[in-house]
Write a protein that binds this DNA or RNA. Structure first.
Length: 171
DNA sequence: TGCATGGCGCCGG
DNA sequence: ACCGGCGCCATGC
């Protein structure tokens, strides 16, 4: 049995749904965040399978709403928020880590991300791994684009990806 | 355990 | 600008 907490709040890119875990004595850690209710449900169903069952009562994680809303105002990256990965292979985590290191306002291609993670030919798999990114905005997969210069897919919607890139490039 | 399938890509024709 | 083949890793059966 895994015990998490969940909550949500409105933003200009839709309702943001998130969950977190209270990992004493290390303190609270963010587990999932997305503007898609569908991905939220999918993810927690996966956890349900993996852990047998989960508890998911409503409870706010202090500071997260402010951090995300401030980011969406522009001019500022989201401060590092403590998080933990309850899903994902080692490969996935490598890709997520490289992606989370892309600075505000910068972009990398899927190929570059794969390269930097140590898998120079796994650009296709890198895309798949980013598709499973549990922490939208915090792991900036919107900053990963195709070599052709096109935005590529985005779990939160391709329009949102473009909006975020535009917003970041203006500061 | 092993094989088939699929996914937010890349390149060449 | 579009398409098919390729390639890699993870997942499911």
């Amino acid at each position: 049995m895994l015990k998490l907490f969940k909550n949500n709040f409105g933003s200009k890119i839709g309702i943001i749904y998130y969950s977190w875990i209270k990992n004493d004595p290390d303190g609270p850690e963010l587990v999932f965040l997305s503007n898609s209710k569908e991905s939220f449900d999918k993810y927690h169903n996966k956890l349900r399978k993996k852990y047998g069952s989960i508890e998911l009562p409503d409870k706010e994680l202090e500071g997260i709403k402010e951090a995300v809303l401030k980011y969406l105002e522009g001019n500022d990256s989201i401060p590092v928020i403590k998080h933990t990965f309850l899903t994902g292979s080692d490969f996935d985590k490598h890709i997520w880590q490289v992606t989370s290191a892309i600075p505000y306002g910068c972009v990398m291609t899927y190929r570059e991300v794969a390269q930097k993670a140590g898998y120079p030919n796994a650009y296709r798999a890198a895309g798949t791994a980013l598709g499973k990114n549990p922490l939208m905005l915090i792991i900036g997969c919107h900053r990963v684009i195709k070599s052709s210069g096109k935005a590529g897919f985005f779990g939160g919607g391709e329009k949102i990806k473009k909006l975020l890139l535009r917003m970041e490039s203006k500061s």
